[in-house]
Simulated assay, not measured.
Amino acid sequence: MTSQTNRINKTIYSIFKKGSKTYYYSTIFFPKKVKRDVFILYSFLRKADDYVDQVPQDSEGFYQFRELYYQAKEGIKTGNIITDSFADLARRKNFEDKWIDAFLASMAMDITRSTYPDMNELLTYLYGSSEVVGLFMARIMDLPEESFPAARHLGRAMQYINFIRDIAEDIKLGRTYFPQNDLEEFNLTSLDEKQTKSNPEEFRGFMHKQLEIYKSWQKTAESGFHYIPYRYLIPIKTASDMYKWTARQIEIDPFVVYQRKVKPSAPKIVSNIFTNSIKLSLN
Rank of each mutant, 00 (worst) to 15 (best):
D110N: 01
D110A: 01
T112Q: 04
R113M: 09
R113L: 10
R113H: 12
S114T: 14
S114G: 11
T115A: 04
D118H: 10
D118Y: 06
D118K: 10
D118G: 07
M119Q: 15
N120Q: 15
L122I: 06
L122K: 05
L122A: 00
L123M: 15
T124N: 13
T124H: 12
L126Y: 10
L126R: 13
L126H: 13
Y127M: 10
Y127T: 10
E131L: 12
E131F: 14
V132F: 12
V132I: 13
V132T: 07
V132L: 08
V133E: 07
L135T: 07
F136I: 09
F136K: 03
M137A: 11
L143Y: 04
L143A: 12
P144D: 13
E145D: 15
E145F: 13
E146T: 15
F148C: 02
P149F: 07
A150I: 04
A151F: 09
A151Q: 11
A151P: 00
H153W: 12
L154K: 13
G155K: 06
G155C: 06
A157L: 02
Q159V: 01
Q159F: 08
Y160E: 07
I161N: 00
I161M: 04
N162K: 08
I164E: 10
I164C: 01
R165F: 13
D166A: 02
I167T: 03
I167Y: 04
D170L: 00
I171H: 09
K172P: 13
K172L: 14
G174K: 10
R175V: 01
T176M: 11
T176W: 00
T176D: 03
T176V: 12
Y177I: 01
